[in-house]
Design a protein around this nucleic acid. Structure first.
Length: 559
RNA sequence: UGGGGCGUCGUCAAAUGGUUAAGACGCAGGGUUUUGGUCCCUGUAUUGGGGGUUCGAAUCCUCCCGCCCCAGCCA
């Protein structure tokens, strides 16, 4: 692609970045960061933030940092820092040696806080949390100044040092920025910048008993790292004046905070709290349940990083609230997997087929194409024999008008094998078909017709003796509502059929050799991958996504 | 009812006063096909509402309406 062909439409953030480069701001340097708090697992909403920050840095020859924003030891844990790093690497990003922790800067932040006090821009406040709230005012009424607001610099310095030294109990004092208790922006009403908190930190242990607050810490972290563009989600928009205030007061390197809308997806929820609720109430099997929008869940489900990044690229970046259609994500994973997933035959709901005129002591190898979309994927040999399984719903005793598959007297193709005709069926006492009797045409080996005759249907199949049993887990959307939050209680809208386990599946033997998570297409059905629950003797597959199903649509449109 | 932000196809989302208002997904129809898959083709909006400025407005002004965020010693 030449530069003239390049897509001209860029998002507003890239526009800002390009303008800054053009104008030589920060010497044309671009440096971004992704700053998760290590207090939970990453979801696809985080993937958007990661891609925005990291892709932009890459596109403009810049750098990106991974930084853990670990300023609140109450909620944080190393377990999360590990899972976060694993997920980001899985997405395909490499922060090289630029891994940072807010806690690495605690000393510098403390020094900056003393500077703020020195400048008369911060004070130690003895109000309780409750009293602070009372003084803050409301959305429509201004707040009142703290009685401690006009302490001398010396007293503030002394008190702040003693806070650090551990002389005061938790919660008894805070360091506050001295801004404006009447500001229409609540964030500017003398926000707390340090609190006393005796809680062991996962990295600094018990070295500190005071911890900086987000608004104070975050701009400093960005500044210290020389971040040029600090892209965050939109709820921080009215924190930006505070972000700027600290940096201006301290007169240090000043990054630009830019806000964008968070990602929402239909038929799921994205808040950490709500996802946690699903886990805690055993509504899902864990954070990596394949129905979860977490990166670990999507990974286990069989989503690829390429599909997720493609998706993020397609949804664009803007500031308005939106709910992206899950169908777009599904399109992206199908599109990716169609190109790369090798094909396999698997029968989910087996119906026995006897090929009457095929010798019972015979079997033969037939050549199957591994991926029609990728000739380099080659072919494989698959065993054919007298007794086979086909999909139960590929047979209709009294076929629907548009049904193209097997029915009494009709000839269809068994993919890559032979044309067969159904001549009889065996039923149980309830009248259910338990077995089909067919004949095959030996002239049609490979599924070709030397006489040029056409058949409408082509079915997948497995050989009864050669195939292996498997458990298959079919997933559907976790919620029945496009927007579960429109319900009084989103839990009520959980889809009872979001997980369907089927146990008597039969699968082509080579499936046993697949690695955990390796994507495959079960022909005519969908994309699947082996679940970590698989053992030596038991194959377990997750359905990542079904193939598009126009047959289902034909039936639906008829109703 | 204070402040901040946002309203363009069913869903995302371009358009930066002059285009028939991009594109993608979805949906509908058709073609190809040894996967009812893939692929290909066709169709699918006058921009929240009213006034105004202008030769010309989704873009500018104005009034209204609607949605989101903010009253943690969370991030």
């Amino acid at each position: 692609m030449t530069s003239a062909d390049k897509e001209k439409n860029i998002d507003f953030i890239r526009e800002i970045v390009e303008r800054d480069i053009r104008e030589g701001k920060h010497d044309g340097r671009v440096h971004t960061r992704f700053p998760p708090e290590p207090n939970g697992y990453l979801h696809i909403g985080h993937a958007k933030a990661i891609c925005i920050n990291f892709d932009i840095a890459e596109e403009y020859d810049g750098l990106y940092n991974l930084r853990f924003d670990d300023t609140n030891p109450v909620k944080e844990d190393v377990e999360y820092v590990e899972s976060i790093m694993r997920d980001i690497r899985w997405l395909g990003f490499d922060w090289e040696d630029r891994l940072y922790y807010a806690s690495d800067y605690f000393d510098r932040m403390y020094i900056y806080a003393e500077q703020l006090i020195d400048k008369g821009a911060a004070y130690v406040c003895d109000l309780s949390a409750e009293e602070v709230r009372e003084h803050r005012g409301t959305l429509t009424e201004p707040g009142r100044n703290s009685p401690w607001r006009n302490r001398s610099i010396e007293e503030n310095l002394d008190l702040f040092r003693r806070m650090k030294a551990g002389e005061f109990p938790d919660g008894t004092r805070t360091l506050r920025a001295k801004i404006d208790m009447a500001s229409p922006n609540m964030n500017m009403r003398d926000p707390a910048i340090y609190r006393i908190l005796r809680k062991s930190h996962h990295r600094t242990g018990d070295r500190w008993c005071i911890y900086p607050m987000y608004d104070y810490a975050h701009c400093l972290e960005d500044s210290i790292e020389g971040i040029t563009h600090s892209c965050c989600s939109i709820e921080f928009e009215d924190h930006r004046p505070l972000y700027d205030w600290f940096l201006d007061r301290l007169d240090i390197f000043h990054p630009q905070q830019i806000e964008f809308a968070r990602l929402n997806l239909t038929y799921t929820v994205m808040s950490k709290r709500k996802l946690a609720m699903l886990v805690e109430n055993d509504l899902v099997s864990g954070w990596d349940d394949p129905r979860m929008p977490t990166l670990s869940g999507l990974r286990r489900r069989g989503y690829t990083p390429e599909a997720i990044r493609d998706f993020i690229g397609r949804i664009g970046i803007a500031k308005r609230d939106s709910i992206v259609d899950m169908a777009l994500l599904e399109y992206c994973i199908r599109d990716d997997l169609n190109r790369r997933a090798p094909r396999l035959m698997a029968v989910l709901d087996p119906l026995k087929v006897i090929i009457k005129n095929y010798p019972s002591d015979k079997s033969e190898e037939l050549e199957f194409i591994n991926n029609p979309e990728d000739s380099s994927a080659g072919s494989r040999m698959v065993q054919f024999s007298r007794e086979l399984y086909i999909e139960r719903n590929d047979f209709q005793e009294e076929p629907h008008r548009k049904f193209k598959r097997l029915s009494p007297g009709r000839e269809v193709r068994l993919r890559y094998a032979y044309l067969v005709t159904c001549v009889d069926s065996v039923k149980d006492e309830n009248g259910n078909v338990t077995e089909l009797i067919c004949t095959y045409d030996p002239e049609t080996r490979g599924g070709n017709t030397p006489d040029g005759r056409k058949v409408k249907g082509t079915l997948h199949w497995v050989s009864a003796v050669h195939s292996k049993p498997a458990e298959v887990r079919l997933y559907d959307r976790l919620f029945t509502l496009e927007n579960p939050l429109e319900s009084d209680d989103f839990i009520d809208t959980i889809n009872d059929e979001s997980l369907m386990v089927i146990n008597r599946c039969r699968i082509e033997p080579s499936a046993a050799d697949l690695a955990i998570g390796e994507p495959v297409q079960f022909e005519r059905q969908g994309y699947f991958c082996k679940d970590p629950d698989s053992t030596e003797g038991k194959l377990v597959f997750n359905r990542t996504i079904s193939l598009r199903d126009t047959w289902k649509r034909i039936l639906k449109n008829q109703k």
